[in-house]
Design a protein around this nucleic acid. Structure first.
Lengths: 117, 117
DNA sequence: GTGTCGTGCAACTCTGGAGTTGCACATCAA
DNA sequence: TTGATGTGCAACTCCAGAGTTGCACGACAC
C-alpha cells in the first residue's frame, strides 16, 4: 500500500494537488464551485468563466484526480462538489517542510556561530 | 501597495508559490538545498540531480521569484538559501480556503436537511 | 414519436516551460 | 600570465497541457 490513511498525503498526492491548484483557471473553477454551494454542472460553470465547457470538463477531471472535487450524475446532468480535505492535508505537508527547513537553517546557523566565535 | 506585511499572501504570491512547487524537479532542488544546510551552488546541485546546471539555474530563478529561495554571491560562486516563510503563508491560505469551503458546504447541507424534512 | 438540452468523446492547434548545448566572461590558484 | 573553475547569457529542441471545435449519444419535455 502506498497510502497511509489520509493523514499523510504522500508525495504523489501532494504533487497532484499542487499541480491542480497551480492553474489559475482551475482555482476560479473551484471558487465558482464553492460559491454555488458545491453543486454545479460543467455547463453552468462555463457560463460564468471565459472558457468553453470542454475546457471546464478537462479541468474537473484533473481536480477529480487530485481529490479536490467529486462528481455524481443526476438524471442527464453531472453535478460536482468540492472536497476540502486534500487542501488541509497539503497545508500540513507544507508546514512540515517549512519547519524542517527552519530546523536545518537554525542548526547551521548555530554551528556557524559557535565556529566563528 | 498590494502587499500587507507577509501575513496575507495575495493571489499572485500564492499562484507563484504553487506553480513553483508544482514541478517535481524544483521540489528536489529545494530538498537538496535544505539538506545542504541552505547553502549550495547551482553546480553542486547539478551534480546530485539528473539535470544540467543550466536547468538548475532556471529553476532557481523561478524559486527566487516565488520567494522560496534567495541567492548571494561569494567570490566567483553563487550560493542559494531556502526561505520557509512563503510556505507557511501559502499553507495558511490553503487552510482559509478549506474552511471557507467547509462553511459553505455545511450551510448548504443544513438548508437541504431543513428543506427535506 | 420529434425536438431539445446536457454530456461525453475525439481530433486538432498552439503556447509555455523544461531541458539541452555552446560560448563568453569573471574569478581564483599556480 | 596562464590555466582552471564557476557563472551567465543566448539559441535551440521538445512535449505536456490548456483550449478549441465538431459530432454522436442519452435523457427529458412535448
Amino acid at each position: 500500500m502506498t497510502e497511509e490513511g489520509g493523514r499523510d498525503p504522500g508525495e504523489d498526492a501532494v504533487s497532484e494537488v499542487l499541480s491542480a491548484l497551480a492553474d489559475p483557471t482551475r482555482r476560479r473553477i473551484l471558487d465558482a464551485l464553492a460559491a454555488h454551494g458545491g453543486r454545479a454542472t460543467a455547463t453552468v460553470l462555463a457560463l460564468q468563466l471565459p472558457v468553453s465547457r470542454q475546457a471546464i470538463v478537462k479541468h474537473l477531471g484533473v481536480l477529480t484526480r487530485a481529490g479536490l472535487v467529486v462528481g455524481h450524475r443526476e438524471g442527464r446532468e453531472a453535478r460536482y462538489t468540492v472536497l476540502p480535505s486534500p487542501l488541509t492535508s497539503t497545508a500540513r505537508w507544507m508546514d512540515r517542510v517549512a519547519s524542517d527547513w527552519d530546523s536545518r537553517l537554525s542548526a547551521i546557523k548555530n554551528l556557524a556561530e559557535s565556529d566563528h566565535d
